[in-house]
Write a protein that binds this DNA or RNA. Structure first.
Lengths: 116, 116
DNA sequence: AAACTATGTCGTAAACATACGACACAATAA
DNA sequence: TTATTGTGTCGTATGTTTACGACATAGTTT
């Protein structure tokens, strides 16, 4: 993707793909759900809840942070992570627009060229 | 992802990640939009509309087909592609559920441990 | 200060994705 | 039949992701 002829695609397409990529691993989906499930910030020890090493989890967190989907605040020795709900709301809208566009398109049927 | 300790994650998390991965490249987002923009099936010559070689586009089509997000019907010499709108609708619902879960979580604020 | 604890960063091996030329094949056209 | 055309598949080079151990760093405790 990074060496795709990226200039051709619209900003919208690239943004959607970027976010989709961030959610393209079950660990990252799980991390977002984990953060959503707590009423307060969660300490950095997210690895304890996942079947992955601390290092690997830190890497997944980095990816989510790079898109600003989550944020981390240093608090003494520990770090609190939480969701950027505002951004997530915007992202949700983008995805919804995309899916609506995709699902309201005319489907193939008896009056179209093929039968799929 | 394929060699993640995949059994640990829920089916839901894996399915969401799988679909997100399918949309994690602007070319594939563009392909879905292209298919949505036509009222009839589109011929296999999707490559002509994208800045990628026919081979590469075929590979992207394969990935979308592997998840059954799109379908192809052979019609003589050409192939018609179209969206699986039913599946897309279901996928939309899954994403919406995920985003709602994520965006309605309690955010950090003055009454939480941190300030993020 | 010294030990400990919570995190982050580096290096790296193995798996995967991306991109595309070259070839294969089946359907149609000449 | 032979040529042409539209698609699919194979091989492969290069880049990216995933995963994790080992080390670095900074705050806390003793």
């Amino acid at each position: 993707m990074t060496y795709a002829k990226t200039a051709f695609f619209t900003q919208e397409q690239q943004q959607l793909a970027r976010v989709a990529k961030a959610l393209a691993h079950p660990a990252r989906v799980a991390i977002v759900q984990l953060l959503a499930s707590k009423t307060t910030c969660i300490s950095g020890d997210i690895a304890a809840e996942l079947p992955l090493s601390r290092t690997t989890v830190a890497q997944h967190l980095q990816e989510l942070k790079a898109l600003d989907l989550i944020r981390g605040e240093i608090d003494g020795l520990t770090v609190c992570y939480c969701l950027n709900t505002e951004l997530l709301r915007r992202v949700h809208q983008q995805f919804t627009a995309f899916f609506i566009e995709a699902t309201t398109s005319a489907t193939c049927g008896p009056d179209s060229a093929c039968a799929c």
